[in-house]
Design a binder for these strands. Structure first.
Lengths: 146, 146
DNA sequence: GAGGGATAGGTGGGATTACCAACTAAAACT
DNA sequence: AGTTTTAGTTGGTAATCCCACCTATCCCTC
């Protein structure tokens, strides 16, 4: 099985990046999970259940998670126009700003790693990761909420 | 900045794999962090502080984490021969067995994703991820403990 | 168009995980 | 020897997570 090596590398890099993100989050009073929420919402709104599914977390865990972030003014809830049971969650301007700052920090923190690749290799890596992101590993990618 | 795209893809794939691992862990009564500990210890022993550094977690968080896993018979502590303050942590046979089983589950769960790449692309991906793992992103890779 | 089941989100309770500050023991430095 | 640093643990509090339930809404079928 060649795919053993891929999964191994994928898991390793996941652990590595996770460590970096955990530290960046901690420096900004955010848990890794909160960081993930911000990351997911960076370019879309999502319903609570979709977030929970993607995070691999219980719906009820999302409630408090969103509550706390909402109390900090980072994100907000909005009635979903198509389904009155559902709520869309999205970043506030402050949340978006923080998220962009965190991404900048991540770029900086990962720079020693990415610097090891020349520009063509970087492009290749992005291309190769693309199908992984799409290929439904788990709940599938988040669809635009509606 | 080309590296933006790399970091973006890296973070995205990290989130994706994290979700998969979270679910696998939950199915086996393991938190994501515990999973990471097992993953790190799969092929080496490590000192408590090194684990904490790599995980991006406080030393004190490690103690309880190790306690609980030790109570479950998954890992054990051992005096470090070179530094009498330090403790090496390592997997028990049961822990190793569980870890291998979890990796198998991860391979299975990620198979729909990795299947998107042919064998040559997989090899390329592994090669491109290699420097990321080595390029000191954060505390650097764990050195063999001594 | 009225039930019946499924789904979206939230509450409340209990265990785990997290941080910080303080502590002991051992190393390292001067 | 004495001071400072480092490794790991403990104790206290807040965040996170799961589970079992709950209400409101949707969807489906009759």
């Amino acid at each position: 099985m060649t795919s053993d090596a891929v999964v191994d590398a994928l898991v390793r890099s996941t652990f590595q990046v996770m460590g970096v993100l955990t530290r960046i989050g901690a420096a900004n009073d955010l848990s890794l999970t909160q960081l993930r929420v911000l990351g997911i919402l960076r370019d879309r709104r999502a319903r609570v259940t979709d977030l929970a599914l993607f995070l691999g977390v219980d719906k009820s865990s999302m409630s408090g998670l969103i509550d706390r972030a909402e109390r900090r003014g980072l994100l907000a809830r909005d009635k979903n126009p198509d389904d009155r049971r559902a709520l869309d969650v999205f970043l506030t301007p402050a949340g978006l700003e923080l998220t962009e700052r965190l991404y900048a920090e991540a770029r900086e923190a990962l720079e020693p790693a990415t610097r090891q690749l020349d520009s063509e290799q970087q492009q290749n890596l992005v291309t190769l990761l693309e199908p992984i992101l799409i290929g439904s590993a788990g709940p599938g990618p988040l669809k635009p909420s509606r």
